[in-house]
Design a protein around this nucleic acid. Structure first.
Lengths: 235, 235
DNA sequence: CGCGGCCTTGATCGCACTCAATTCTAGTGG
DNA sequence: CCACTAGAATTGAGTGCGATCAAGGCCGCG
């Protein structure tokens, strides 16, 4: 199967030594001789909202570090529906499963404009035999992936529609300004929480009516959080 | 907080070199000098159904390899309910988060009699600076944990009660004889799939009435699978 | 202006929850 | 061996929440 190919802008080959978020990412602890042993190119790419980084079943040849933006990890159920199982943010890594599996195990799609480093898996495999520091970083990523995944399950797929929507609103708060929250389309929010888009819409409206949040645009994406405790209680 | 402490039988200090399932577990690739550097004791424990391996928040000092039996990974939601987020089987590892976090991030409870190796985290940390082979094994475990966790989310928390119960039945099939399946209590099955125990009971009964499964005991735990395709279609 | 995409809102329906009673099993002690 | 009990599973009746079907509104865009 030839996958749908990817719209992405190439921004050049990365110089990881001077990466702005190097301290957040896999290569944080590498030294000069580690970098010297990197021969395959690490590319710096930009994806637009809706672009695909890779699809489930694609041959796994790269690992992707998110530098900026939001990225959805999507699984397709046998009966044709779609579930968003995790959201990746700056510093997170997509496609780690490629280190062990021949192909990717989920679809990964940009949810907003996203700036991404594409690292050949061969580099990771070579370095990981020589650099215990990279190993630690890799395992930290795995740890975070498991924790995020289980938190997701526990937070968004539990309780009433009202509670689930409240938890989405909380989970999508901005890192920089936690009083702001950026929601996805109602359909995507439904795929995150196993609700129908109409139900999501109703519950968002209800939180607005009750004064817990306040719309900052006219298209239902950006909200200001007014009553944080109320959302957390979700009563 | 002093956690409820644990009922477990000590079966002796393990000799990992001659472990019956060594090829399945973390130490598969260690050589003699690796073993020679292990100084802390690795204990071999037996837990009975319902015993606690550790609780969320306990100081993380060991990693546990499951040798035999079934183990539940449990999370407690803020509103006091309980969710089973994963099941561990022979070869799986519990408590890996202790490598990075100071305390465990979920409760882990034996679901049946379980035989378990308790490995001090100090051993893993020491070995992982010297043995790239252990690193690979560890990352394989992380990979499996993420995949299991996301599969769980996608399979058991999706669709109608009928489909969820069918997926539990399929997930709990025996490795040795896949025509047999061992269910948990209806309450635990509810915690796995976010259903009430009465709903689970109804749906199990319905699959029996329709001839997809057949009870092998009188207490509703062991069933023989008669019509596998029907369960997979779940229509 | 018309069109398409997305969000919102309304009315109705059905599935899963709730509350409750009953049955079955294993375990205990007479 | 039987009576009694506690715990678990099962079954029933009624309710309510979220899905479904449908209509209408808002926004951006050609």
């Amino acid at each position: 199967m030839i996958p749908i190919q990817i719209e992405s802008a190439w921004r050049g080959t990365s110089d990881c030594r001077h990466c702005g978020i190097r301290d957040m990412v896999l290569f944080a602890d590498l030294n000069e001789s580690d970098f010297a042993s990197i021969h395959a190119p690490i590319d710096d790419l930009v994806f637009h909202a809706g672009d695909t980084l890779f699809l489930e079943g694609d041959s796994a040849e790269h690992v992707f570090t998110i530098r900026k933006g939001l990225v959805k990890v999507v699984r397709n159920t046998p009966d044709g529906r779609v579930r968003i199982v995790r959201i990746l943010r700056a510093g997170d890594v997509a496609g780690l499963e490629g280190l062990f599996a021949p192909s990717y195990e989920s679809d990964v799609v940009a949810a907003s404009e996203a700036s991404v480093c594409r690292i050949p898996i061969s580099i990771i495999k070579n370095l990981s035999t020589t650099s215990p520091r990279l190993h630690m970083r890799l395992m930290e990523r795995w740890h975070k992936a498991v924790k995020d995944s289980e938190d997701w399950l526990a937070d968004l797929n539990f309780g009433t529609a009202r509670q689930r929507v409240a938890n989405i609103i909380l989970k999508m708060r901005h890192d920089e300004d936690p009083s702001l929250t950026s929601l996805f389309s109602r359909e995507d929010m439904g795929a995150m929480s196993d609700l129908k888009l109409e139900t999501v819409s109703r519950e968002v409206s209800r939180w607005v009516k009750e004064g817990a949040i306040e719309p900052m645009d006219r298209i239902g994406r950006l909200y200001r959080i007014i009553d944080l405790p109320k959302l957390k209680r979700a009563d």
